Simulated assay, not measured.
Amino acid sequence: MDKVMEILKRSEALLEGHFLLSSGKHSNRYVQCARALKDTRDGEALGKIIGEKVKDLDIDLVVGPAMGGVIIAYEVGRALGKESIFTERKDNIMTLRRGFEIKEGQKILIVEDVVTTGKSTLEVKKLLEELGGVVLGVGCIVDRRGKDVDLNMPVYSAIKLEIESYDNDNCPLCNDGVELYQPGSRKMA
Rank of each mutant, 00 (worst) to 15 (best):
P65N: 00
R41G: 09
N170T: 08
S11M: 12
Q32F: 13
P154W: 11
C174E: 08
M5L: 15
R29D: 00
N92G: 13
G132R: 08
P183A: 10
G24Y: 13
Y156T: 01
L180A: 11
G118S: 04
G146E: 08
G43A: 15
G69Q: 04
P172H: 09
G47Q: 08
V178L: 03
E16Q: 14
C33F: 05
K55H: 06
K126S: 04
G177F: 02
I7W: 12
Q182A: 07
M153P: 11
P172N: 09
I110C: 02
G99C: 01
E179Y: 12
G51P: 00
I85D: 00
V138H: 08
D2L: 12
E88R: 15
R89Q: 13
K82G: 07
I59K: 02
G132E: 03
S157K: 14
K38D: 00
Y166N: 02
R97P: 04
I163T: 05
R186K: 14
Y74F: 15
K9H: 07
S23G: 10
D150K: 15
V114N: 13
A66M: 00
H18C: 01
I102L: 13
L46Y: 09
C174T: 05
K119R: 11
A36F: 11
K107Q: 14
Y181R: 14
L128T: 01
D150Q: 06
K147Y: 03
K147Q: 04
G137Y: 08
K103Y: 12
Y30R: 11
K25Q: 12
G133P: 08
S185W: 15
C33P: 01
K48H: 06
Q32N: 15
D143G: 06
M153E: 11
K125T: 02
T95E: 15
T95I: 10
N92D: 15
D56N: 15
E88D: 10
L161R: 12
